[in-house]
């Protein structure tokens, strides 16, 4: 079972209290009416699905109830950091970052 540090409760707690909520830092378009179909596809469906450090949202559903962000390595499942929802994505491990660059280029 994953042990997840909730940045609001400031405690490391069992996965069963949490719900995964998808890739983080995907901003809803500010002018939805002006989006093309391809832009909507990117916003709604395209995901990085990175093999490496993945920024993602979790919700401490059976706890404080808050959504927060986490940086987790998708190969080892190890959490590198968890942070409050407004904060920017922290940098991860060197190896994980390398595969991110590969994906974003």
């Amino acid at each position: 079972m994953l042990l997840i540090h909730c940045p609001y409760c400031k405690e490391k707690l069992p996965e069963l209290e949490f719900e995964y909520a998808g890739q983080a830092h995907i901003a809803r378009p500010l002018n939805p009416a002006e989006q093309s179909d391809a832009e909507w596809r990117d916003y709604l469906f395209i995901r990085s699905n990175v093999r490496g450090d993945h920024a993602e949202q979790w919700r401490h559903t059976h706890g404080c109830g808050r959504y927060f962000n986490a940086l987790r390595n998708t190969v080892s499942d190890k959490f590198i950091a968890t942070y409050e929802i407004e904060q920017p994505r922290p940098t991860g491990s060197e190896e994980g970052e390398k595969s991110n660059e590969q994906l974003e280029s």
Binding site: M1, E11, E15, L16, E17, G63, G65
Partner: peptide, 16 residues
């Protein structure tokens, strides 16, 4: 699933 030893007397939490 919580480690109940870490829950101190006089405290309460939401859990499963």
């Amino acid at each position: 699933p919580r480690n109940l030893r870490e829950l101190t007397v006089g405290c309460g939490v939401r859990t499963v």
